[in-house]
Measured scan of single mutants.
Amino acid sequence: MASQGTKRSYEQMETDGERQNATEIRASVGKMIDGIGRFYIQMCTELKLSDYEGRLIQNSLTIERMVLSAFDERRNKYLEEHPSAGKDPKKTGGPIYKRVDRKWMRELVLYDKEEIRRIWRQANNGDDATAGLTHMMIWHSNLNDTTYQRTRALVRTGMDPRMCSLMQGSTLPRRSGAAGAAVKGVGTMVMELIRMIKRGINDRNFWRGENGRKTRSAYERMCNILKGKFQTAAQRAMMDQVRESRNPGNAEIEDLIFLARSALILRGSVAHKSCLPACVYGPAVASGYDFEKEGYSLVGIDPFKLLQNSQVYSLIRPNENPAHKSQLVWMACNSAAFEDLRVLSFIRGTKVSPRGKLSTRGVQIASNENMDAMESSTLELRSRYWAIRTRSGGNTNQQRASAGQISVQPAFSVQRNLPFDKPTIMAAFTGNTEGRTSDMRAEIIRMMEGAKPEEMSFQGRGVFELSDERAANPIVPSFDMSNEGSYFFGDNAEEYDN
């Protein structure tokens, strides 16, 4: 993207840094990872977990959730003011799984939030270390993106479920800051804005008074975040219109849905970061690795190297396929839920299948599930090659597409044709070009129609051997075009429920 120079890199967003050079960025990201790792080690000690239990991804998720809940100030305040039966607002906890007599047992633990905050700050040299908290939120978000298709949420806001490739980060909490905003897809931002506008339509006082002023500035800020994701002048001009509207209503909703559809071809720039579970960072720190000293990046080879040398386990339900569970977590670790499966298959070195073909449910185990038949197995999170994460949407291309997802959002900077089903997408653009945004709409449609099938995206960008740390010898991959490109292809993934 041309304006790259004016933006802070995501590592800076990730670490609240002012302008830093590459070495400083690597050190501050490393410091953040160190903090998460030290916190995780301490929690495993508190909970008396064995090494194996500490490497269980379900335990990692519970521990991450506990610290996120302990620092969720708004919710904590709300819980104190609106006490609900049987919930102690000062405590947080969740299921911890232990191996007892050759069987997995679930144990519900409860801790004072104050105590968890103390352990977290102690692991982070006394700081609140917001960057580390956001990092864990993005890992949870990436896992949700890989596990669930947001059909219901899309339909509720009037969008087409086939636009799911635009929904990265749709389950990120509001408090995820600049680093969170960077990884949100165009569809996620559109959905947040539509929800806001709908509230304004239904509630006369939404934009009024002292609160209304705050609401208005939040609305304009979200519009600017979305505008910054678009790469064409016409899309940005249309966002200006939406932002400046005196009284946002149905016309703005129409414009936003139009823009979301246009992003299936004229893709937005959305950041991709490899955020790993805390149970990967903990053992690495415990083994003596100093992330701050060595430096770390979320968008280069580092996460690949770390996963190459990590042992992570997962509980497996009786009829689940461990290899499929591994694929789910591998995609989440690489922030690749909406990437082209052919690119992923090449990088991973084994075939990556669409969601609907995987015999696996989510990673988390519900409290009512029976533990008797639970097994555990090693997650295979290694890769054959590594590639640089991208934040450009890439230019655009036609490809055989599917009944489910009709476009992709690249996660890796790797040369390819970008699949999208042009006739299906263009069919949504018939007729409606009147109104105050008509010239911009016409211009956007013209650009979409001009998108050429034979153009290559990320020209000359390749993948790298894991021994090639400096990215000196790019390998331009070859793809098996007979395979499906979309992950949520004609899909039956479970729906995400809060």
Rank of each mutant, 00 (worst) to 15 (best):
Q20I: 09
F230E: 10
I475A: 04
A179V: 13
D302V: 05
S345R: 03
D101P: 00
R391D: 11
R55E: 07
S176W: 11
R175K: 05
V312L: 03
S478T: 06
R199D: 07
Q327D: 12
G169N: 05
S376W: 02
A411S: 12
P453E: 07
T437M: 10
R152G: 15
S176R: 04
P477T: 11
P161T: 03
R117I: 15
F230H: 10
W120T: 08
R216L: 01
I406K: 15
A237C: 12
G393P: 02
R74E: 10
T378Y: 07
D145I: 08
R236L: 09
C279G: 12
E210V: 08
G30S: 12
R400Q: 02
A427S: 14
P277G: 05
M456I: 02
M331H: 06
I265W: 12
R121Y: 02
G394M: 10
K325I: 06
V155M: 08
C223K: 12
E469Y: 02
G187E: 14
G158W: 07
M222D: 03
Q459W: 03
W120N: 11
T360N: 03
L358S: 11
A70H: 07
F291I: 13
L108P: 05
R470K: 15
E46N: 03
T232S: 09
S377T: 02
G177A: 14
N250E: 02
D145Q: 10
S69M: 06
K452A: 00
E369P: 01
P277A: 14
Q149M: 11
D88E: 14
S392D: 09
M222Q: 09
L341S: 12
T6M: 11
N368H: 13
T390G: 07
E254Y: 12
R99F: 10
E294W: 09
I425P: 08
E192I: 10
S402K: 15
R55G: 03
R106V: 13
G268K: 12
M1T: 06
E81A: 02
F420W: 07
G450P: 02
A85N: 06
R102W: 08
Y385L: 00
R175L: 13
D421T: 04
E443R: 09
R243D: 05
D480W: 02
S262I: 10
K98D: 15
E320Y: 10
R8K: 11
S345N: 12
S314H: 12
R436G: 14
M456A: 14
A271C: 07
C44D: 07
K91Y: 07
G132V: 04
K91S: 04
A179E: 05
F230A: 10
Q311E: 06
K357M: 11
Y487R: 13
M481G: 13
R152P: 02
R267P: 06
A260L: 10
F464M: 09
D145F: 10
R75V: 08
E495T: 04
N319T: 08
Q12Y: 01
K184L: 03
G349P: 10
D72M: 13
M136D: 04
I119L: 04
S457E: 09
S141P: 14
R152M: 09
M13Q: 14
G431A: 04
H135E: 09
A129I: 00
Q235H: 14
L226Y: 11
E46R: 03
L47Q: 04
P419A: 01
I265S: 05
T430P: 05
M447P: 05
V352A: 02
E434S: 00
E192H: 08
R236I: 07
A427K: 00
Y385S: 01
R355K: 08
P89T: 03
H140E: 11
V285C: 09
R348Y: 14
N368F: 12
E455H: 13
S478E: 11
M222Y: 15
E339S: 12
A401E: 13
H140Y: 13
G349S: 02
A182V: 14
R199M: 10
E494K: 08
G435E: 12
N125C: 14
